[in-house]
Nucleic acid binder design. Structure first.
Lengths: 347, 347
DNA sequence: AGGCGCATGGCAATCGATTGCGCAAACCCC
DNA sequence: GGGGTTTGCGCAATCGATTGCCATGCGCCT
C-alpha cells in the first residue's frame, strides 16, 4: 500500500496565483510582483517563487491580467481587401505580410488575433460584438471604401494601415509607392516597345487604382493612345484572371502586354496565355505586383514590383507600438522596385 | 453661444455595462441578461437596452466576460512544423489551411489567435507565459517530435491536430492519408516507367516520413531497386529545394523523377531543372504534395496529391468544438487523391 | 537605549461582466 | 380582499491578477 508521501518531487499543480502564494507561504501580491520581476521582492523570494511556478506548471491567467492592466498584449490583424468573403486571406501576398507581422509582434511579445470582420462594418446582429480584446489594430489594405476606414480610424489612436498615402486619411500608413510602381511597369513595357496593354485588377481598390493610374499616366505621356489600353476589372483570385485572360486572347493576339494588380493574377494570366499557345514574353509581356515567393519560380519567371513584406510588417508593428506608447507614428513608404525577370524579356 | 442640450440625439458614449444600466435605469445584471437574450428580461426592456447599446456604441468587454465565464470564444492555431523559426507560416499550404480554419471558426463565432510558439516548448524565459487565453488549440503538423506533442495533448481535452494517424497519439487528428499519398505517387511514376527517384523533404517530420515510406514501399514491391532512390533532406523552403535540385542535376540527368514533400519544394525544383535545361516532364517527372492554388498555374502545371484544406479546416474546427462541448471527436482521414497534370506527363 | 530609515511583504480595492438566489409587484382565482 | 403564482429585476459574490498604501521587522547611528 503506497504511503502518503509529502516529498518534494510530488508535482503539485497550481492553477491560480493564490495557490502559488499558499505554496510559497507569501501573499498573492508578492507572487505577482515576483513574477513581474519587481525589485520590491527580494531576489531570494523571487527565485523561490519562480521555481514553484515551474514545478507546478502554473500559467498566469491572461484574461484576468489584461482585465486588470487594461492591456492584452494582443494585436488584431484585419484583411480589408475582400468585400464579399474572407477567403482572400489565402493570397500568398497577404499571408506573407501576416507572417511578417506575426514575427515582428512575436519579437515584442505580442499575440496576433486574426479578425473575422472589418470592425467598421457595423454588424447589425443584435448582439453587441465583444471588443476590447486587442490593444491595437493593423489593417491590410484600404479596400474600396477608404472613407469608412478613415472614419473608423479617426477616433482611435491604435490603428495602422498597410496601404497608400491618400488624402483624407486619419491613420498612419506603411506601404509601397503604388503610383511609382505603376510608372515603373509602364516604363519597362514602353522600353520594350509594348503599347497595347491590358490591366488586370479591381481599380476601385485604392492601391490598385493608384497602380493603374501611374501606369496610365506614363503610357499617355509617352504618347501611347489611351484607348489602346484595356482595363479588366476582377476580384483577387486566380480563376477570374485565368478566365478573363483566356477570353480576351482567344480571338487572337492584339494586346502585347499584361499588367496584373497582383502576382496571383499574373501567374494565372500567364497560364491562360500558355494554354492558348501565346508565348511569354515573345508575344506578350506579363508583369505582376507583390513579388511573392513563387514569382521567381514560375516559368517564365515573373517580372514584378517588389513589396517588401518583411520590412512592411516590421514598420507596421513598430508604428503601432509607438502609437500605443503615446508616441507619433511615421508613415513609411517602402522602396518600390521593379524586379525584371523572364516574363517581360528579362534574363 | 451653444446652449446645453439634453435632446435625445446627443450620442452618449458608454464604456461599461454599469453605464448602460444607469442610462436605462435598471441594474447591471439586467443589462447583462438582456444582452444575452435571456427570457428573464421582458422583451420591452430588452429592446430598450439594445437601442441604448446601439446609440452609445457600447461594446462588451470581452476580457471581463471571459474571465467570468471561463470561455473566450477564441481558438489558438499553432504551426508546429518549423523547428527553428516561424517563417514557414508563409508557405501557401499553411496559409490555406489557416484560412480555412479561420472561416470555419468565424461561422461559429470564434476568433483565431495565431500563436507565436508551440505550447509544449517550455520556454526557459523566466516569465511564466500567459495562458488560458484560448478555449482550444489547433496544431498544424506533428513536427519532428511527436512524443512531445503527445505528451502535451495527453492531459487536455481541447487539442486537435492536423496530421497523420500515428500510434501513441493522444489527440484527434484530421489529415490526408500520407502513406497512400506516397503510394499513389510511386504508382504513377512506375506506370510511366520511372524508377530512379529523388525524394525532397525532411523525413523526420512524421507526415513527410509517411509519404516517403509509402512511396518507397511501392517502388520496392514493384521491383525497383531501393538504391536507385535518393532522399534529399531539407527544410520547407524554396531556396533549399532549388539549391539541392540544381546541385544534383548539374552533373547530368541520371534520375528521372522528383517527388517533393510539398508543392513549394516541387515548384522550386522545377525551376532549377528548367534553369539547367532539363525538360519536365520529358526528361524528369515532378510530383508535389498539397495542391496549393498555384500548382495548377505554374508551367508545366504540377502533378500533386491534393489535400483538401477547406474540408480539413472544417473538420478540425468541428472536432474541436465537439470536444469543448464534452463530446467525442472523430478522426478524419480525408480523401487522398492524385491530381495528374503536365509535370508528370498528364494532359 | 531610543530613533530613524530602508527593505519586504500583506491588505484590500479594483478591472467589467455573469449568475444564483431572493424579493417585490402584478395578476389570478375564489 | 387575501393567498398563491408568475414575471421581472436587483443584490452581492465571483472570476484571477494588479497595485497603492500601510505595516512589520531589522539594522544602524548617535
Amino acid at each position: 500500500m503506497p504511503q502518503p508521501d509529502d516529498s518534494e518531487d510530488k508535482p503539485v499543480r497550481a492553477r491560480t496565483m493564490a495557490e502559488i502564494a499558499a505554496l510559497a507561504g507569501v501573499a498573492e501580491s508578492t507572487v505577482s510582483r515576483a513574477l513581474a520581476g519587481s525589485e520590491r521582492v527580494s531576489e531570494e523570494t523571487r527565485e523561490r517563487i519562480r521555481k514553484l511556478v515551474q514545478e507546478s506548471g502554473y500559467r498566469i491567467n491572461s484574461r484576468a491580467r489584461s482585465l486588470r492592466t487594461r492591456r492584452s498584449r494582443t494585436i488584431e490583424v484585419v484583411i480589408g481587401i475582400s468585400e464579399t468573403n474572407r477567403q482572400h486571406f489565402s493570397d500568398p501576398f497577404f499571408s506573407q505580410i501576416v507572417a511578417a507581422i506575426a514575427d515582428a509582434l512575436a519579437e515584442n511579445d505580442y499575440d496576433l488575433l486574426l479578425s473575422r470582420a472589418r470592425p467598421w462594418d457595423d454588424v447589425e446582429g443584435a448582439d453587441a460584438i465583444a471588443s476590447n480584446r486587442a490593444d491595437g489594430v493593423i489593417i491590410i489594405g484600404q479596400g474600396r471604401e477608404p472613407e469608412k476606414l478613415a472614419e473608423y480610424a479617426a477616433s482611435r489612436r491604435n490603428v495602422v494601415v498597410w496601404g497608400a498615402d491618400i488624402p483624407d486619411r486619419s491613420y498612419p500608413v506603411v506601404g509601397s509607392d503604388n503610383l511609382l510602381g505603376g510608372r515603373l511597369v509602364a516604363r519597362r513595357l514602353l522600353a520594350q516597345g509594348r503599347r497595347r496593354l491590358v490591366f488586370l485588377g479591381d481599380i476601385r481598390h485604392v492601391e490598385i487604382g493608384l497602380r493603374h493610374r501611374g501606369c496610365m499616366e506614363e503610357m499617355t505621356s509617352a504618347g501611347a493612345a489611351p484607348d489602346q489600353t484595356l482595363t479588366l476589372s476582377m476580384p483577387f483570385d486566380s480563376e477570374s484572371a485565368y478566365g478573363a485572360t483566356r477570353e480576351l486572347f482567344r480571338g487572337g493576339i492584339w494586346h502585347d502586354a499584361v499588367f496584373a494588380a497582383s502576382d496571383v493574377l499574373a501567374v494565372a494570366a500567364m497560364q491562360a496565355l500558355s494554354d492558348l499557345g501565346v508565348r511569354v514574353p515573345e508575344d506578350v509581356s506579363v508583369i505582376g505586383y507583390d513579388d511573392i515567393a513563387l514569382a521567381a519560380y514560375v516559368s517564365p519567371a515573373l517580372t514584378t514590383i517588389r513589396q517588401d513584406t518583411v520590412a512592411g510588417g516590421r514598420a507596421l508593428v513598430e508604428n503601432l507600438l509607438t502609437l500605443l506608447d503615446g508616441g507619433e507614428a511615421r508613415d513609411a513608404i517602402l522602396p518600390t522596385e521593379l524586379i525584371v525577370r523572364r516574363s517581360c524579356g528579362g534574363s
